[in-house]
Design a protein around this nucleic acid. Structure first.
Lengths: 208, 208
DNA sequence: TAGATTGTTAATCGATTAACAATC
DNA sequence: TAGATTGTTAATCGATTAACAATC
């Protein structure tokens, strides 16, 4: 596996394209132009082509892109051609909502286990979530034995950093962080911060 | 109210600074340097100063920023000095998680009502959510009579655009969109797309 | 005055868009 | 061949960082 270096935003959009391609596939479309696909993803055609240009040549001039071919190519690039195992830490409001959401599997990853420090929480949620919910003190061991490399953090701010430390120590390489904690991680680990309150706060500005 | 034009990212970070300042305030700190505050927010001091430079002069050279003064100034800029009323459309997994989350109020906005198309949903959730959950066909009227300008969309993709159209028609100016629908809105309406699946998909790339 | 720290300008960086030659 | 559409280069744009003079 060649390690390509891609701009963050490009990676994000590849993920978008991938979902659109799946939809095209389901409706039986076999070929799309950069204009069609970009339209579906909400970006400019020229940007789509630029993004794809970073990783290879997939189209046929005058014709467009083969839906299946491109979709599989992108899956490969994102590392989603094999189902990616993900753990979830924190099963509060947001964590459990994400667990129930479910649509993830279609995207090429699967939340294989969730963890929480609240024992009551652990017991009451295990069945209704569809994934095992375990006490957080089993997190490290689990991550190690299952070779997990991707994690979602949805714990209160105060616990964020220590959870991240544990994860990184066991080999996790990418973290999607919903806690408002600012995580510091070593070089080579990617953190993607999603700060819902700040997101909402910032749109309020544009309403005035 | 002068209408300032700020870079999106700057607005987002102002929201971050604001939260950090509140924490400083709670712990009795009266003055912070750009280094302290930037550290707390996870950005570079120079960026913080640049961001603030967009909107005015709040500091004292050699000393730093007054916590309270700066905090109130930012609230004013973001339009959060008065509690901002927000409606939520869609009370599925994600929507209800956000409703329960609650931490929003401290940030200066309040979800005053939620809407859903599923009548069962409406009934069963109203009490447990702490806000009225109403049938979606009352959305337009409610938004208009309450002068709501900010909305959160957490409905399935297929319904996203039509909900957005209704909101915009009734005067909503800013939308935080959690549906994966690519919304098209008229000039002057701000949409902030948060695509959780794409977010997760894109970090997977960095794990390989 | 000396030390600290802001506000701001200039330099850098990265990402988006436009334009067009290559080619199916 | 003519029409369409890609792949890629160059131009633009916006955002981040470095540097430093202003000043408390």
């Amino acid at each position: 596996m060649e390690k390509i270096d891609l701009p963050r935003r490009t990676v994000y959009r590849l993920s978008l394209y991938q979902r659109c391609l799946q939809k095209f596939r389901e409706t039986g479309v076999e070929t799309v132009s950069s204009e069609d696909l970009a339209g579906a993803a909400g970006v400019k055609p020229t940007q789509l082509r630029k993004d794809l240009g970073h990783v290879g040549q997939f189209g046929t001039r005058g014709l467009g892109y083969g839906v299946t071919t491109l979709s599989e190519a992108i899956s490969g690039i994102l590392g989603l051609s094999i189902l990616q195992p993900v753990v979830m830490v924190g099963v509060g409001n947001l964590g459990s909502a994400l667990l129930r959401y479910g649509g993830f599997r279609r995207e090429g990853f699967e939340i294989i286990a969730a963890f929480d420090s609240d024992t009551e929480h652990v017991k009451s949620t295990t069945e209704e979530m569809g994934v095992p919910v375990l006490p957080v003190d089993q997190l490290a061991a689990y991550v190690q034995t299952h070779g997990v490399r991707v994690a979602i953090i949805a714990v209160p701010e105060a616990a964020g950093q220590s959870v991240a430390d544990d994860l990184v120590e066991q080999g996790v390489k990418a973290i999607l962080n919903f806690s408002s904690a600012v995580l510091s991680v070593p070089e080579g680990v990617m953190v993607n911060q999603v700060d819902l309150a700040a997101e909402l706060g910032s749109i309020c500005f544009f309403a005035s």
